[in-house]
């Protein structure tokens, strides 16, 4: 069976500086893949390639077996790719409702989106006419994740979802993501903070200096990580 998302020998560069030097990976329907690695390893670049923001300089990006190098971000989004970018993936000067309204470009009605979003995160309903920029960090991230839960994407990309959030909120967000995974959405999670992502993942890879340094089950990867992050000797 063709995997939903496949990267074959993907190279990517900013101007002349190559950041990814040949990445191969695949995600099946309903599978959660965690992409881990230290800062500056190329994780975010990888997501930008998949979301269509960056065109690979070499190699192929395949979605459902179709080569999609160079497709526009908005077309990929309309085709069912949902990206929650690093930082707060919301429009700070739009209200919560208007933010949700932006999620209707895939042909959903406002009502469907609001129902799904408020169903997952009742707190957002209380704040629906507030500017997103005035929400707390956790609420903003809920609003960002609301896009994933209300648009039912085929593939979900999550970049540093937990960054700067209290553990309890991270738990709540990952619970929502877990429910999506159970419903068969393929998910690619990029995280610097590994534990939450590993708890959810079926499979994990570690990226270091633009290459895949390790690949395996979450438990295997957990061991490898400590050395990558904190510079201890690599365990045998």
């Amino acid at each position: 069976m063709t995997p939903l998302l496949e990267l074959r020998d993907v190279h990517a560069a900013y101007d002349a500086i190559e950041v990814l030097h040949g990445i191969d990976l695949a995600v099946d329907r309903g599978e959660v893949l965690a992409v881990l690695g230290p800062n500056g390893a190329g994780k975010t670049t990888l997501l930008r390639v998949v979301s269509g923001e960056l065109v690979p300089t070499r190699g192929d990006l395949l979605v459902g077996g179709r080569r999609l190098n160079g497709a526009a971000m908005s077309d990929l989004a309309r085709a069912g790719l949902c990206t929650i970018p690093e930082g707060r993936g919301v429009f700070p000067n739009l209200t919560v409702q208007e933010n949700l309204w932006m999620m209707t470009h895939r042909g959903l009605s406002r009502r469907d989106v609001e129902e799904a979003a408020f169903g997952y995160f009742p707190r957002l309903q209380e704040r629906q006419s507030q500017l997103a920029g005035t929400l707390s960090g956790g609420e903003q991230q809920m609003l960002a994740v609301a896009r994933a839960v209300s648009t039912r994407p085929a593939l979900l990309l999550l970049d540093e979802l937990s960054m700067g959030l209290a553990p309890i909120i991270v738990g709540e967000l990952f619970a929502a993501v877990g429910r999506l995974a159970a419903e068969g959405v393929a998910i690619l999670v990029v995280e610097q903070f590994a534990d939450a992502a590993l708890a959810l993942a079926d499979h994990a890879v570690v990226i270091a200096q633009g290459r895949i340094a390790a690949s395996g089950t979450p438990t295997e990867i957990k061991e490898a990580l400590r050395s990558t992050y904190l510079g201890a000797d690599t365990p045998a």
Binding site: S162, P167, Q192, F193, A194, D195, A196, R226, L230
Partner: peptide, 15 residues
């Protein structure tokens, strides 16, 4: 620093 729990927590997550 290598042994500091808070540092490890900050880098590896909040659990």
């Amino acid at each position: 620093i290598r042994r500091d729990e808070r540092v490890i927590a900050a880098y590896l997550g909040t659990e």
